[in-house]
């Protein structure tokens, strides 16, 4: 169990983390989600006492900096490529292990576990980003800790590696461990996490389970196609729905249940060629939740023909 209270960090001008409080429960994977620059890494560094700032984080009741031999309790992967280029993977782990009373056999065990067994005596200078992440994960798992904190661990992994990482984290959580893993990709969290902590610009946006996040931040709409669409618009609007026209001539109806739309078509005697509901994908929910809090807003590319993503027939 991790409990973070009142985390706060300001760099000269920017407030990177603003009064974040949350709990991370054992037995589930908790995703830490936010766009680039929203303060995920800073929050993790604060939690570990690497950065100095406000607030307090307790790992099973103890501050990280007062845990004796902390790798046996809390495993961490912060940034990729944090090792000396000519010290072999095995020696890198050996160094960290020597500060935590971890046996050599365990080093070989975790290197095999992350698939670096054959490369363990190689210098990490030649490692790809994916291999570096695997070494970082081996480092996190070294002390067989009850709590894992991983900062964007799937960066640089291929799809197979991402799949493997997901399964690994889920099985570790199923063993009763506390897993806190950050990502800027909601689709990834949707597959991996049970709980979410979502931040934008250092502020808490959402804390709860994944389904609840989707419900809270998605507005479902009803799609209608009809030969007499124009007549139907005024009927819908008269009943309080708001209607916009899609690119394809379809009507996008919000603020009215799909059943009510169907009933209205029936009473008005309007022929429908399509009646379906569309709920925004999790990605869209994420965008709408964090959009206002986005740090680096890029120019929108020019829109071309749009296919309605996530549409599902009712």
């Amino acid at each position: 169990m991790i409990s973070a209270k009142g985390l706060h960090k300001r760099y000269e001008k920017t407030v990177a983390v603003d009064d974040l409080s949350f709990e991370v429960r054992p037995g589930v994977v908790t995703g830490f989600l936010g766009p680039n620059g929203s303060g995920k890494s800073t929050t993790m560094r604060l939690m570990l006492g690497l950065d100095h700032g406000g607030g307090e984080t307790l790992f099973d009741g103890e501050r990280f900096t007062s845990i004796r031999r902390p790798m046996n309790c809390v495993g961490t992967l912060l940034e990729a490529k944090q090792f000396h280029p000519t010290r072999s993977a095995r020696n890198h782990l050996k160094m960290l292990a020597s500060a935590n009373g971890i046996a050599n056999a365990r080093i070989d065990r975790v290197l095999d576990l992350v698939g670096l067994g054959p490369a363990k005596r190689k210098k990490p200078k030649g490692y790809s980003l994916g291999m570096s992440q695997r070494l970082g994960l081996a480092q996190a798992l070294l002390g067989d800790p009850h709590t894992l904190m991983l900062d964007e661990p799937t960066n640089g992994l291929d799809p197979h590696g991402i799949h493997w990482m997901r399964d690994l984290l889920k099985s570790l959580a199923a063993e009763g461990r506390t897993i806190f893993v950050s990502s800027h990709l909601l689709s990834e969290m949707q597959l991996m996490a049970d709980e979410l902590v979502v931040i934008g610009r250092g502020h808490m946006i959402f804390n709860g389970d994944v389904d609840q996040f989707v419900r809270e931040f998605t507005t479902s709409t009803v799609i209608v196609r009809s030969p007499s669409a124009d007549a139907f618009v005024s009927a819908l609007e008269a009943k309080g729905a708001s209607v916009t026209k899609g690119d394809d001539g379809e009507l996008v109806v919000s603020e009215m249940e799909i059943g009510m739309v169907g009933h209205l078509a029936f009473t008005e005697g309007i022929e429908l060629t399509e009646l379906s509901s569309r709920s925004a994908s999790l990605e869209e929910a994420f965008m709408s939740a964090t959009g206002a809090a986005e740090q680096f807003v890029a120019e929108q590319p020019i829109q071309t023909a749009q296919t309605p993503e996530g549409a599902k027939n009712a």
């Binding site: 570990l48 900096t65 944090q82 160094m95 960290l96 500060a99």
Partner: peptide
């Protein structure tokens, strides 16, 4: 100096936070 040059200071301080 190496700890900073190669970014190992963070792993080091998570292995030995005192």
């Amino acid at each position: 100096g190496h700890e900073y040059r190669h970014g190992t200071i963070q792993p080091t301080l998570t292995a030995l936070p005192q």
